[in-house]
């Protein structure tokens, strides 16, 4: 089977994001960019399926600016077989919305016919948590979101989902979309020879127009601001003093 893994280029999760003072967004100048951590876990899971002899080919795809090719190279170095870049924007501040990304992925899936689409549950920039669900809707197939366990069988997959009350186990028909949570696996580090090898793997660039998808945003971003600050509190010197303060300030203790 073929596995398709969409990946997104985002600000590295270790970077403290700074809001631009004019409210136009967050500062991207000289900021380290990386593969969205949830997507990296999806790539790792797909590569493990290949190593286990369950998948024949792992295709990675990214929708965005040309610089997104760096995260595709990372995914190839982790073990994916080929990459597709959908060149959908030139300004790095342009965030292609989940609905448009889902339409692009649907068009690519129609061509490539993957049995499984594995992707991160959300991108850590816009935190929308929507693309996988939207893609499954457009494909008319099953979805298993927030997955921490995946067992692929004949014609179906069993997925352990992380839900608010604990875990839910579902069986989904194939093809399907699985979005992964943090605890699914721990991604490997790409080795130097694999980074070199990744440079020679097939890499295609296409455009949304070629796929017949309009990527114009539906949401107008009016302003991006700093979150309200919490004022710094006080340091107490003992448990007794802490209790005294809590009795003064709250009714719950």
């Amino acid at each position: 089977m073929k596995v398709l893994v969409p990946v997104k280029r985002v600000i590295d999760y270790n970077v403290k994001v700074r809001v631009r003072p004019d409210g136009s967004g967050v500062d991207l100048a000289n900021v380290k960019m990386s593969i969205n951590p949830f997507d990296e876990i999806a790539v790792e899971e797909a590569v493990r399926l290949k190593e286990a002899g369950k998948a024949e080919e792992v295709i990675v795809i990214s929708v965005g600016v040309p610089q997104a090719q760096t995260v595709l190279r990372t995914a190839l170095a982790l073990g994916a077989d080929r990459a597709i870049l959908v060149h959908a924007a030139d300004d790095p501040h342009t965030d292609i919305e989940p609905l448009a990304v889902a339409k692009i992925l649907k068009a690519v899936a129609d061509e490539e016919k993957p049995t499984l689409i594995l992707m991160g549950k959300q991108a850590i920039d816009n935190d929308l948590n929507a693309t996988g669900q939207m893609l499954a809707a457009l494909m008319g197939c099953a979805q298993a979101t927030f997955a921490s366990g995946l067992e692929v069988g004949e014609g179906s997959a069993t997925v352990v989902r992380e839900v608010d009350g604990g875990l839910q186990v579902v069986k989904v028909g194939l093809p399907c979309v699985v979005t992964v949570d943090l605890r699914m696996n721990e991604p490997r580090y790409p080795s130097l020879p694999n980074i070199q090898r990744a440079k020679r793997k097939p890499f295609a660039t296409i455009t949304p127009e070629e796929l017949g998808v309009d990527v114009a945003p539906r949401l107008e971003i009016l302003e991006t601001v700093e979150p309200p600050e919490r004022k710094a509190g006080e340091i107490v010197n003992s448990v007794d003093e802490l209790l005294e303060k809590l009795r003064e300030e709250t009714e719950v203790v």
């Binding site: 809001v19 920039d125 816009n126 935190d127 949401l219 971003i221 601001v225 979150p227």
Partner: peptide
């Protein structure tokens, strides 16, 4: 957005 490090008005 960004894990609560910014707030977006849409």
């Amino acid at each position: 957005i960004y894990a609560g490090n910014a707030v977006q008005r849409v």
